[in-house]
């Protein structure tokens, strides 16, 4: 999946798999924070801009 996103040109870092148990609330919050940070660095999905300019 990540490889496909790379080929498309969106960046494979935009997708992430996380393994959690139902008791891992703290880890869930951390995963969300980490993912948000990664995506913030990558910037917005370039397709959104493409959609807006059409």
């Amino acid at each position: 999946m990540a490889d496909l996103l790379d080929q498309i040109g969106l960046g494979g870092e935009r997708v992430r798999m996380v393994n959690l148990s139902s008791a891992m609330a703290v880890q869930f919050a951390e995963a969300v924070e980490a993912m948000t940070e990664t995506v913030r660095e990558l910037g917005p999905n370039p397709l959104r801009d493409a959609q807006h300019t059409e």
Binding site: R14, V15, R16, V18, L20, V32, M35, T36, L47, R48
Partner: peptide, 12 residues
Amino acid sequence: FERGVDGLMVAG
């Protein structure tokens, strides 16, 4: 992604 999300998590 086509609909414009910036990132995606699959969590299980």
